[in-house]
Structure formats: structure tokens, C-alpha cells
Amino acid sequence: MPLTLSANIPDPDGFYDDLLQAHDGLSDAESHALNARLVLILCNHIGDRTLLRDAIDAAKTTR
């Protein structure tokens, strides 16, 4: 299964709100730590090394 880069999250505004709320009141360092934990949890959920490499590549492409 290829990396999904088309819209896939139901209720996108609600999700985005959840993400921001998770960082509410956190210092920058705490926020970075939360993001790191989140990345690791999501990566483990995906598990597939090819997909993870594709996702890292997609994230590295900024333009």
C-alpha cells in the first residue's frame, strides 16, 4: 500500500483542534517532547519500513 497523501482524516478541523489543544500550555521544550512521542507512536502504528521511509521523504520535501 503506498503512502496516503490524499485527504484521509474525517473532520479535519476537529483533528487539527485536538492537535493544538494537546500543546496548550506547554513550553516549547514540552511541546517538542510531545511531538517526538507522537511521531514514535504513529510510526510504530504504521510499522511498514517502506511506508515510513516514504513518509520521512515526503516530510523532508519542503518545496
Binding site: 517538542h32 517532547a33 517526538a36 512521542r37 511521531v39 514514535l40 507512536i41 510504530n44
Partner: peptide, 23 residues
């Protein structure tokens, strides 16, 4: 700084979740 961040995130998660222990 960022590798420290990920390292400590792994250690933090490893205390609660099995998945992080192999890391």
C-alpha cells in the same frame, strides 16, 4: 538537541508501552 529529544521520548514511552522497548 533533537536526538536527545527523541532519545528521551523513546525512554519515556518504553516505561509504559512495549513497542518502544526495542528502540
Amino acid at each position: 538537541g533533537i536526538s536527545q529529544m527523541f532519545r528521551n521520548a523513546v525512554l519515556d514511552l518504553a516505561s509504559r508501552h512495549d513497542f518502544a522497548r526495542p528502540l
